[in-house]
Amino acid sequence: MDDVPGPPVLQPGAGPVRAREYLPAEVDTVLWGRLPCGDDAPVLTVEPGAEVTLDTVSHEGILEDQGRDPRAFFGAHGVDEVLDDAVAVAASDLVRDPRTDGPHVVSRPIRVAGVRPGDLVAVTVLEALPRVPYGVVSNRHARGALPQEYPRGGAPLHSVFVPTTPDLTHGLLPLAPGSEQVARFPLAPFLGIMGVAVAGSERPHSVPPGPHGGNIDLNLLTAGSTLYLPAQVDGGLVYVGDPHYAQGGGEVALTAMEAPLRVTLRLDAVAREEATARFGELAPLAETSTHLVPMGLDRDLDEAMRACVRAAIALLVARYGMDERHAYAYLSAATDFEVTQVVDVVQGVHATIRTADFR
């Protein structure tokens, strides 16, 4: 289990870089534990429609409760080559207080020229490449869906090291510590954090999602999908982080299979008037090749569900001209409402509306 075969590790700048614009995860191009705000200077400015390739670093293996030494942490599982940028972040003096800040390593913001508050920034995932052939799932510090039950025995942390198959298509999670028997599950890489900066000078905590997006943890945001986010400041100031190789709906243990990605994004702008006509209320909304995915967010899961239903009704009214009562009926008959995650303080529900039903 501890032998980790597979393709070459994608060290910073090495291997395929799809876009002309490339943003590595260097100490001066990332934040740790906080999300960008309006007072943060962009590290890159692009025109609408531009493509950007970014390297992302996972927080698993670099946090204090894992020793803040990724070479030692992953070396204990037989890993010979650890990402240089993960080592650099862990060894840096980046300001992060574990008592008040989140765990996530997040890119500093990218400005999209011409975007104004109220416009939508459309972030399309063109490619999501695993950078290493392994990941980690952690349950820590009485958090997750069962905080009074796990981790067992009062332990502060339980991390499971998960190798992948050599072709990076499946994870291999052992049935028990040291077991050679595994559960084999498909990988579907995506970014847990995709967002725009909030107005003002206070950087938000990296864990709870909100109207700015942030730690949405929507597992449908794989390659080919788009996330629409309402800009709160000029330029939008887009950022990403929290890379995953796989996540079930709910993300119940606190983390899913966390592991670093090299992602290529296309950043577009949708003017406020057009956005309102296409989508109704301006709120985080995802779109895949087959579905529209409105979301609801609230500390109370019941309220998140209600918010998602309201957003879905408003979307159907704006997009297809449905009567709201008929939209409500359609959602009940034909749409799945799914739990996005229950572990990020603000919980999430999303709806999957088939676009083929309206062609």
Rank of each mutant, 00 (worst) to 15 (best):
A333I: 04
N139S: 14
F279K: 00
G213S: 14
F73A: 00
R99L: 11
V105Y: 02
V30R: 02
L220S: 14
A128M: 05
V123H: 01
V112N: 02
S225G: 04
P70S: 01
A329Y: 08
P294I: 12
H326C: 01
V263A: 13
M295G: 00
S92K: 07
H77L: 00
G13I: 03
F161I: 03
V162H: 09
M295R: 03
D97A: 06
G178W: 09
G67N: 04
T255N: 10
P130D: 08
S92Y: 06
V198M: 09
G15H: 03
E338A: 07
T45Y: 07
D69S: 07
H104P: 00
A327Q: 02
H212T: 12
G61S: 05
A256E: 01
H104G: 03
S289R: 13
V293E: 06
R99Y: 06
R20K: 14
M305T: 08
D101S: 00
G114E: 14
D242F: 08
L227K: 05
A155N: 11
V238G: 01
E81H: 11
E64P: 01
A356R: 10
P243V: 09
A334P: 00
A142G: 03
G154C: 11
P294C: 12
D65Y: 13
D300V: 10
V52L: 02
D268H: 03
A246L: 14
D268T: 09
E303N: 10
A259G: 09
L35T: 04
A113V: 11
M1S: 10
D97R: 01
D40S: 08
P103G: 12
E47D: 15
V17L: 13
E303C: 03
F279V: 05
Y228L: 06
E51A: 11
G78A: 05
P284N: 13
T264K: 08
A91C: 06
G13H: 06
Q341G: 01
G241T: 02
P211N: 15
G210N: 12
F358T: 09
P70G: 00
L172H: 15
L237R: 10
A50Q: 14
A91L: 07
T335A: 14
R272K: 14
T288P: 08
S138F: 05
V270F: 02
I313L: 04
